[in-house]
């Protein structure tokens, strides 16, 4: 009996200690788990804030680009056509009926062209809202505008299914990436042929923009100073959790590939 009693007490003590350690371990695990979850949520919130800020910035940039396109169109097309109309009408001599008739007919044609140009212009203004109708339509509109000035031969290939999900924010980022790439080609590449491929594979959207221009190397001061805006583009691609690949060499064109999780 004397031997038995301490044994039972020892067992009680050991079991109590095991329960104590188990409880301690559990509380420790729960606190660590919840702390990590909190930190993860905070990081997610921070990312969301950065995303929202960049979204606003992108909206501003798309707006700016639209205004630039608008100004260029007013100056290069409508302005020229209207000036020509003005000159034609000013040169009319009412005594020369045959010439007057021809000039009025020319002026009529020029005004019809101006109206057509104005209609195109209104589409550019709508460009900002066009993103609501989908990425494909917006990119197609931009390509139409590019083709109109006649400097580039644009080859546009697209395989994009109709998405039901709300992708407006993402589309705006991708559209802006597309615009920036196109701006780089117009401003620096001296290319005359542009190829755009917009394809979709389950879960991913791929946008490839290539040109046959002068290309560049990473040692190029323009690329080094980030005059091409590659750093900004990379930052946006990272926000979308995508990937960007630039391949270029001197005098052999440039190709830029964006792979973005989609939708």
């Amino acid at each position: 009996m004397l031997q038995k009693e301490p044994n039972i007490i020892l067992i009680i003590l050991v079991i109590t200690c095991i329960f104590f350690v188990a409880a301690l371990f559990m509380i420790f695990y729960i606190t660590i788990f919840i702390r990590r979850k909190k930190r993860h949520q905070e990081e997610k919130e921070k990312m969301r804030l950065v995303f929202d800020q960049d979204l606003i910035q992108t909206q501003i940039e798309v707006g700016e680009q639209t205004r630039k396109n608008l100004a260029a169109d007013l100056h290069d097309n409508i302005g020229q056509v209207l000036s020509l109309t003005h000159v034609t009408l000013a040169s009319i001599n009412p005594d020369d009926k045959e010439k007057t008739r021809r000039k009025i007919s020319d002026a009529q044609e020029l005004i019809t062209r101006s109206i057509r140009e104005l209609r195109q212009l209104s589409k550019i203004i709508q460009g900002e809202q066009l993103i609501q109708q989908g990425l494909l339509k917006t990119i197609a509109q931009e390509i139409t505008w590019l083709q109109r000035n006649g400097h580039y031969s644009v080859d546009f290939v697209h395989v994009l299914p109709d998405f039901r999900a709300d992708t407006v924010d993402k589309d705006l980022f991708i559209y802006r990436l597309f615009q920036e790439s196109l701006n780089n080609i117009i401003r620096h590449s001296r290319a005359d042929k542009i190829t755009i491929r917009l394809t979709y594979e389950p879960g991913f959207l791929q946008l490839v923009i290539s040109d046959n221009g002068i290309g560049f190397t990473m040692e190029d001061p323009l690329a080094n100073r980030d005059g091409l805006g590659l750093g900004n583009m990379q930052k946006r691609v990272n926000l979308l959790k995508g990937a960007m690949e630039v391949s270029s060499a001197e005098n052999s064109g440039t190709s830029i590939t964006f792979t973005i999780p989609y939708p």
Partner: peptide, 9 residues
Amino acid sequence: FFFYFVSTT
């Protein structure tokens, strides 16, 4: 939890 779990024995 500590009180009631450990006091089981």
